[in-house]
Write a protein that binds this DNA or RNA. Structure first.
Lengths: 335, 335
DNA sequence: CTGAAAGCGCTAACAG
DNA sequence: CTGTTAGCGCTTTCAG
């Protein structure tokens, strides 16, 4: 708004050339202290704020990273934004958000990626979701440096931060199977930061180890991410169902299971145990408190930014695929 | 990465001048259909993506809006991001997020606003919080067009979207007081999208109407936004307290109250009623389900960007301060 | 209807 | 150590 003060104004005010001003705002150490001081004062006096856009044009760097995800994944992404925000702030990057889905016309995700291309973001952070394959493909096509969270992938310009979903599922199921509790059911919310396929793979493997087979048709319960829908669904379901263990891909749906089960007179954890995932506030609020798998979401966000900037600056990278540790938080819904 | 294709390349490919290419990508209708076609084809063939940065420099418009908020307000902001994202996508704006606090050195909020100034965002959306005054002041200082959500303010370049917090509190308290239930307590989380002062004002007014006075020292219970802290606090508190009504500034803390009360043998709503605010998922998950004030957060986000773009485009604006309706959702924690 | 040319505000060689 | 001079990729008068 109005006439912004430019580097020229500062140069004139300080009695130097614009090149010198550029040098001091970029921290070049070849400027004579005396001159630097004069320039600094002029900057102060004029309240000069370097135009990032102009700088961006000149350097072909925007120092902004784009994060793209479907609206429906927001519940997962939000916890990471803390880590993403803090870290990018510390590293002096801006972050722009691009959401896919919800508005459906044409090919939304292609349109969105196109927008980030036009914006010339230096890099992008993707989140595992149903369309991740297409997103990855597009990002690679445009050779945008990127890191994806929640899925194990890498390529020349791409890295990833992930948890070992398969192992999580395997360990849990293996443990129950070992105790002779074989009636296990997996609740699968539609969108998920954690790869559902991997979870299921882990479950299958555990069943296999125990010489049994996991029946994908009967032992997987697809459900909605909206409590208003999942709860009634389970309320109905548990009228004539009961299992040794219900393992859910996300806490919120696990809570729906707990509440619905209890409302059908099923004792939790007495008659049936329940385990959620992500260790969110929902787990704490649930009565009894929900046993859940803790995933360090803040750290994942932070690590993603860090890895991305390493790729951008072509720093030494020891691993483009960085795994992150999970932790079972035993609470009231398991024995 | 690599050599991006520019408007020059397209011009050459199409055998026209760059001015013409510029015209067609900007939808000018003075270009001969024939020429336009040739250019379009060239754009396709070269997969040309106009550089927004360059365009930004030339037009001194970035078509991006910045949203700034403290990390601690994230739980509130997240629900609005849907509306903000969808709407800005529809209007073809990018959105950048800037978070304050958490990293504390120097004057964070001043630093953050400075960043948005440097980024030359066309406008900014602010959210009511403890530092909102300073944020507003800075944004006005730099004459950045803006809208604030959750607080009723306006000025030349500033509008706002808000709910009538005072009325909400007044109505509720008035109703209980009328029924002779005078032992009312207000639970106040630290950060809040809703102006706590206004809520308290409404409560005071209701008490006044009934010839009583609201004791701010005893009837206001400050608490943490972390369930891990609020729940234990209330567990202790309700060992020797009980009220007619507990009204909370946010659902999550209301749930902590419900759980803590029940764990102390207090019947909800039999012995004590509880009302939350914002009508989040927490309210549904709570047992019994929490009565809460519904606030149309998605719409607030959408309205905010709509209002902001009106300010940006200097469109006709009938009201710079737009109120939004709330709605009491009676559920299991009230009679 | 189209092209030439002058910026937008800054960076980055290249001289000096 | 500092100034000159080209751009970065696009928009926008101004001519024609």
């Amino acid at each position: 708004m109005g006439k912004n003060v430019t580097i020229y104004d500062v140069a004139r005010e300080a009695g130097v050339s614009l090149a010198t001003v550029s040098r001091v705002i970029n921290g070049s150490n070849v400027v004579k202290p005396n001159t630097r001081e004069r320039v600094m004062e002029a900057i102060q006096r004029l309240d000069f704020k370097p135009n990032q856009i102009a700088r961006g044009l000149a350097t072909s760097k925007t120092t902004t990273i784009a994060i793209v995800f479907p609206q429906s994944l927001f519940a997962h992404v939000k916890d990471m934004i803390g880590g993403i925000g803090d870290t990018s702030r510390r590293l002096d990057y801006n972050v722009s958000i691009y959401t896919t889905d919800e508005i459906g016309d044409g090919n939304p995700i292609e349109t969105v990626i196109e927008k980030v291309v036009k914006s010339r973001a230096d890099g992008v952070i993707l989140f595992n979701n149903e369309e991740i394959e297409q997103e990855i493909q597009l990002v690679n096509k445009y050779k945008i440096p990127s890191v994806v969270i929640g899925s194990r992938v890498s390529s020349e310009y791409m890295g990833s931060i992930f948890i070992d979903a398969k192992k999580i599922a395997y360990d849990i199921v293996d443990e129950y199977l070992s105790k002779g509790k074989k009636d296990i059911v997996f609740v699968s919310p539609k969108q998920n930061l954690i790869r559902t396929e991997d979870l299921i793979l882990g479950i299958e493997e555990a069943y296999q180890k125990h010489g049994m087979t996991f029946d994908k048709d009967k032992q997987i319960l697809p459900t909605s991410t909206h409590y208003e829908k999942s709860y009634p669904q389970f309320l109905e379901y548990f009228k004539n169902h009961k299992h040794d263990l219900v393992f859910s891909g996300y806490d919120k749906e696990a809570v729906a299971v707990v509440n619905a089960a209890i409302d059908n007179g099923i004792q939790v954890p007495g008659d049936m145990e329940v385990i959620g995932m992500m260790d969110t506030s929902y787990a704490l609020i649930c009565r009894p408190a929900l046993t859940s798998i803790h995933v360090p979401v803040y750290d994942m966000g932070a690590l993603a930014v860090r890895l991305l900037t390493k790729i951008l600056n072509e720093e030494e990278i020891d691993a483009r695929e960085v795994p992150v540790q999970h932790l079972l938080m035993p609470r009231g819904t398991t024995k």
